[in-house]
């Protein structure tokens, strides 16, 4: 009869040391930053008397963004907030892949890289169809 104590048990799925805490901080800060920008944009929208459903929205123009922010235009803050919102989970995947790569866990680093490739394809597909 085999000794049950000798049977290898699956190890807990702990991520490399410190990675989860770093990712948690990144998500918290990223979300706070994004929601903060969206809140400022929404307040400017209300203060400016702009009716969200009645008016056409200005398209996303990255070159015009700094000027819109300096002029306190709601569109600038809202677009930047939306970009920060979308960027936050993508940064989380990048940081996780980096954490696994540093720990020498190539398989999970490659999985993170694979997700980033899919994100890149989404940018290309959106750009081509936009």
């Amino acid at each position: 009869m085999s000794d049950p104590a000798a049977t290898p048990r699956p190890t807990p799925a702990a991520a490399p040391a410190g990675v989860e805490a770093r990712l948690a901080r990144l998500l918290t800060i990223g979300t706070g930053f994004a929601v903060g920008l969206l809140a400022i944009g929404s307040l400017l929208l209300v203060a400016g008397g702009i009716s969200p459903l009645a008016e056409d929205w200005p398209p996303l123009d990255l070159r015009a963004l700094p000027g819109q922010l300096l002029a306190l235009e709601p569109a600038g803050f809202l677009w930047l907030g939306l970009l920060a919102t979308i960027a936050t989970p993508i940064l989380r995947v990048s940081a996780a892949a980096l954490g696994f790569a540093r720990a020498g866990e190539r398989r999970f680093a490659a999985l993170g890289l694979g997700v980033l490739v899919v994100i890149g394809l989404a940018v290309v597909a959106g750009w081509l169809g936009g």
Binding site: L78, W79, T85, P89, I119, A122, G129, G130
Partner: peptide
């Protein structure tokens, strides 16, 4: 988060996200 981000990018670049509606709602 990252699942929705992948499709949100497509919607955003194809003009499918209205910032005036998205901001206050979010």
């Amino acid at each position: 988060g990252v699942t929705a981000a992948a499709s949100a990018i497509v919607y955003l670049l194809r003009g499918g996200i209205d910032p005036y509606v998205a901001g206050p709602t979010a």
